[in-house]
Design a binder for these strands. Structure first.
Lengths: 211, 211
DNA sequence: CCGCATCCGTTTCGATACTG
DNA sequence: CAGTATCGAAACGGATGCGG
């Protein structure tokens, strides 16, 4: 059953927390930043969240106008959750949260999620605009993203690209390491930690956006 | 007993939420933005939070380096809680949260807290720099602040001023209304909702920073 | 009074199992 | 796949107590 408790405080900060302050709520929003996701995608992306928790949060976020549930037309015939405009306005907040949190040491028992690394990738590209227009296919674990560079911006969407110039398949930890040290790419490929298709030189350039 | 649960996610957003994502944590930080507060001050400022909850949150925030407990030297002989440097770095986050939350309609059953109105006052002054250097005493309910204007900035501290140019005593709701409509000051004084001392013209100027 | 600690009922969380 | 059902554990919220 969805949570209804409130701080009963007219302060805008408290009002915001009434909507997105419950446990897992902002992490659900984080997962939806790169596009619509199915229930099972969210569940796999947030392994610590139980399914009934996810149901509750999605219902609450939907009731609060942050998330929208959409039933895809046939033949897909499945439903997805996506951010509303109001939900997308949370992005500066998530950036501020991430900036503050990145100063905290990383605990050994924590794992790196795909979305987290992609947020880092996109954030890094903002500062650094040097890449030509290109589209890549990026696969982390069993999830796939489209990464496209255009005029220094880097756009990431949670969908399979139509005609990628190159493809990279790895796991979040390895990608994170490669963003911090792009020179490790050949070693990672040799070790089987990274699988690529298409032009290696394009992928090399992509990985350098963070350095 | 303080909370120890964690998202176990290396994402900076999740790491931040591990530290300041528990219920009431960010509202405690909000209350400390204008200076050190005693336990009982915090308790009165956050009427919805039970005392054991407050104890837990303060212990956690202290353990995480966000808040510091300091024992005042005699003759005060009491302890106060204040933000550390790390805690003060949460201010942009709270601003982002407040900005997002202010788009949400205010529920009828919510009350306006003093700190909330003061954040609005200070935030309004940022945009609008037109005030001369002055120090005011502001009393809302039974709590007292020092408000000082200098070169377009407005500084607010949770302490009694030494030599205020003027004093204003009212409640959060009335102050909020006056910031939205400074022309209501005379009516509010006549109605006994506002008590002033010192130069009325200075106070009039102070109230106009938000318009 | 202040600063908690303790007790206790309720809500929420988290894990697992199960269903259409 | 997309959730519900169930249940124990933890967190929350309110009240009371207690030493300084």
């Amino acid at each position: 059953m969805p949570t209804t408790r409130s701080y009963r405080d007219a302060c805008p900060i408290a009002r915001a927390l009434d909507l997105i302050g419950e446990r897992w709520a902002l992490l659900v929003v984080r997962e939806l930043l790169f596009g619509a996701q199915r229930f099972s995608d969210l569940s796999r992306a947030l392994p610590g969240a139980s399914t009934n928790m996810l149901t509750d949060r999605l219902r609450e976020l939907e009731a609060h106008g942050v998330v929208r549930r959409r039933v895809l037309p046939p033949p897909a015939a499945c439903s997805v959750y996506e951010l509303t405009d109001r939900g997308r306005e949370l992005e500066p907040l998530l950036n501020a949260l991430g900036e503050w949190g990145s100063a905290e040491p990383r605990s050994a028992s924590s794992s790196l999620t795909a979305t987290s690394v992609l947020l880092f990738l996109r954030g890094s590209a903002r500062a650094h605009h040097s890449s030509p227009t290109d589209t890549y296919r990026l696969q982390l674990g069993d999830r796939v993203w489209t990464v496209s560079t255009e005029s220094g911006q880097l756009e990431i969407k949670a969908e399979d690209p139509a005609a990628p110039a190159a493809s990279l398949r790895t796991d979040p930890e390895t990608l994170n390491a490669l963003l911090l040290d792009p020179d490790g790419l050949d070693t990672a490929i040799a070790a089987g930690a990274v699988h690529i298709e298409g032009r290696l030189s394009s992928l090399r350039r992509l990985l350098r956006v963070a350095t």
